[in-house]
Write a protein that binds this DNA or RNA. Structure first.
Lengths: 261, 261
DNA sequence: CAGGCATACTCGTATAGACGAGTGGGCAAG
DNA sequence: CTTGCCCACTCGTCTATACGAGTATGCCTG
């Protein structure tokens, strides 16, 4: 093994920068320069204690800085590792175009298969419930809604959790209320039911996940979520669906195409 | 002052949940329920040490959990406070429509004025430089580019840092290379120069900020950034500008309107 | 050879203490 | 009354220590 000094340098005792920050800086730089590669193990806490001559809590403090930046993650009993950048899923703005409504399979499945990854959908739940204030507003003062919840996984990793809300007068008793909405998904069914889709509106936020989201998406620390709320409007200007999606930010790139009108 | 027990409950020594997590849970719940309001001060470390009968580092550990979630922020010498949600700026997908090109003022200024906040633009830098690999690819194998950097502030708070890159053969010697590009901004100038804009492509990512970004945007810990890369294409299909923008995620909501084609 | 156990190494949690530095209020001197 | 200092309270940094729990490895036993 290469000796630590050759990788990591010394502390500057005259600097007013906190020791744990100096250590974090050195580790960050070493990672940026590729001295530690993706997935590779960093020196253990004990080794860094030895190398820098500081206490263990100080080293741990450095690690927690890097964890907060999403650069590394710790595994109990194993070590601290450079966080690999997972393959990202690109969401194009035309992903709901009618020509993309495949027969039978959902867009997620088709797309993942094409990319060579193994897609899964679980935590399927379809039920009627009371609309939250926000959903009610978006759907135009609806009291109760049909909610369709599902979680998407790529190669076993949860990447997205989505809930669709539809007004009961549209969805109740239709195939939309079934676990499997059939070919073309719920947008296909909506159009068959006479709700010709006109346009979508998407709102995008980014924030740190709640503890619940950390669990359902198995998020590492230092990974934000992208919160996307899409409203689908029919040609009569009525909001016919609201889809609330929380995505692991390290697994997604959203892409939009805008006319310059 | 209300006594802590009435606000915070006790620890469960039989639980296998770590003490610092239990404390974090209780504080989080108290915040969610509005027992501590936005901007309000949480109990001091000493008070929580007293209340729970734990060591100070354990309390600090709880705080660091909440900080990582972006829920609270600490101020040296003052206390730990519930992080107020700043007013957000909504970016609509039609914000570059020609009809929005105001005379003289930039879109940012106009919009902020309308919203009643005090806008500023600083760190203006306009210079020619070598194109990075990524920028070169996006602009179609260009070696050198004109780079326009600027930082946007709302009510004194930096919210966005943006850099526009333009091919030299388009921008050199034009008003685009001046600090003030004139009415309608650089898109106005580009069209005057015969580059009729056709469409934009925007790529959106979210991630934790680098230390540099923390500094320039004065980000609190637990606040991610939205990284937006926009490419402008003219009617001949040529990429005429790439704009790389890093935004404080807690200050923005992006909004897109998509046709259902 | 296979299974299981001991062990060493990893990070996780928690304690107790020390000193430093930023903030704000009150008190004393002018 | 104003100025300036001191002090109490706040969080920031760091040390030293202890034990627990997950992981991997190799040796020992059957």
């Amino acid at each position: 093994m290469t000796s630590l000094p050759s990788l990591l340098g010394d502390l500057d005792p005259t600097s007013d920068r906190a020791v744990f920050r100096q250590i974090a800086d050195q580790l960050r730089e070493a990672i940026d320069r590729g001295r530690f590669k993706e997935g590779e193990k960093l020196p253990s806490e004990a080794e860094l204690v030895e190398h820098y001559g500081v206490s263990r809590m100080t080293v741990r403090n450095s690690f927690s800085v890097l964890q907060g930046e999403g650069l590394v993650h710790a595994e109990h009993g194993k070590g601290v590792f450079v966080r690999p950048r997972p393959p990202v899923r690109r969401l194009a703005s035309d992903r709901f175009a009618r020509r993309h409504r495949e027969q039978g399979k959902s867009a997620f499945i088709v797309e993942a298969d094409a990319a060579g990854s193994h897609p899964q959908v679980d935590s399927l739940e379809v039920k009627e419930e009371k609309a939250s204030q926000d959903i009610s507003t978006r759907l135009g003062s609806v009291r109760r809604v049909l909610a369709r919840r599902r979680r998407y996984l790529l190669d076993g990793r949860p990447v997205e959790f989505a809930t669709s809300y539809l007004p009961l007068d549209i969805a109740r008793g239709t195939q939309i209320a079934e676990p499997n909405p059939g070919p073309g998904g719920i947008y296909g069914r909506l159009e068959e039911l006479g709700h010709q889709l006109d346009h979508f509106e998407e709102e995008i936020r980014a924030r740190m996940p709640s503890p619940t989201e950390v669990k359902t998406l198995r998020l590492a620390s230092g990974v934000p979520v992208i919160h996307l709320i899409r409203t689908a409007y029919d040609t009569e200007g009525r909001a016919v669906e609201v889809c609330d999606t929380v995505m692991a930010a390290d697994a997604y790139v959203l892409s939009y195409q805008l006319p310059a009108t």
